[in-house]
Amino acid sequence: MFYSFELEQYLGELLPARNELLNEMESQSLKETIPVVTPPVGNFLALLIKMSKAEDILEIGTAIGYSTLWLAQDLEGRTGHITTIDLNIDRAKRAIEYFKRAGIEDRIDVLFGDARRIIPTLEKKFDFVFVDAAKGEYLDYLSLVLPRISPGGILVVDNVLFRGWVVPGEKFAPKYNRMVTHLREFLSKLTQNPDFQTSVLPFGDGISVSFRIK
């Protein structure tokens, strides 16, 4: 995290109390070092869904389903549906169990496999797309998902600032060169795309929010 843990913790403390299932998933992800969004980011996702009234939602990177449950919070009483994709079958299966416990398994399709191969097989367009998967593949995801976002739709991508290392002049271990370079290229292409209006927000590990211009 490129800004203080204390600040992120404070932002989390400002949120309303989370339900028992989300608390359990947070504890489990910390215990097993499973990468999931922070609670402030999860709350932001839920807020965007509520404000946009998105119905068809695509998530790339399910993990154990923590962010999916945030995305699903405003679906009750509406016809919304989530399609979520993950390469890690074991984690995705655990996510399905959490969805069952939350009583929303009928609103979520979990697809196992490489999103780069699965996305081209999806027939519909989406009102909301959330990407939180392999950072070195963000450029690939970008080219695949942009044509599938409906006019007026929203694209949110997590970890786009990657500990602040995307900032020119920042120092990091050489093993991260490729990933940081890809993220810089990704942000450049996304922010310069004339079909989308984009803002990059410096909380969590950095989030980009893009609106498809009608």
Rank of each mutant, 00 (worst) to 15 (best):
L161Q: 09
L144C: 07
R107H: 03
I104N: 07
L122S: 06
G169Y: 10
R101H: 01
G136Y: 03
I119R: 08
K171H: 10
E137R: 15
D127C: 05
I96L: 14
E97M: 13
D106M: 13
A102I: 11
A115E: 01
K124L: 01
K125G: 02
K135E: 05
R148I: 01
F172R: 13
P147K: 12
V160T: 14
I154P: 03
V129G: 03
L122R: 11
G153M: 13
D158R: 13
I104Q: 04
I96M: 12
I118G: 00
R116D: 02
E137Y: 08
A102M: 07
L161H: 11
L111A: 01
L144S: 03
F99A: 00
Y98Q: 03
A134Y: 02
P174S: 08
A115N: 04
E137L: 15
S150C: 09
P147W: 08
K125V: 00
P151Q: 04
G164D: 11
G164T: 11
V129W: 07
R116V: 10
L155W: 07
G103F: 04
P151F: 06
I108M: 02
D114K: 15
P147G: 02
V156S: 06
V145C: 05
L161N: 11
F126G: 01
E97N: 14
V129P: 03
V145G: 05
V129T: 09
K171G: 00
E105T: 07
V131G: 07
I96T: 09
V160R: 13
E123F: 01
D114R: 15
D140T: 05
K124I: 08
S150N: 15
I118E: 02
Y138I: 06
F128W: 09
F99C: 03
P151H: 05
R148L: 12
L111Q: 04
P168H: 05
W165M: 14
G113D: 03
V156M: 14
W165L: 12
L142N: 12
L155H: 09
E170C: 11
I119A: 06
I96W: 08
A102P: 03
D114P: 07
L144D: 04
P120H: 11
E123M: 11
R117V: 05
D114A: 08
F130W: 12
G113P: 00
F126Y: 15
G152Y: 13
R163T: 05
V167W: 10
L146G: 03
F99T: 04
F126R: 01
S143A: 12
R107P: 01
I149D: 01
F112H: 15
K171Q: 14
E170P: 02
A102T: 11
D109H: 05
T121D: 03
F112N: 11
F130I: 04
D127E: 10
S143W: 02
G136L: 05
D114H: 07
P147H: 11
P120K: 12
W165H: 15
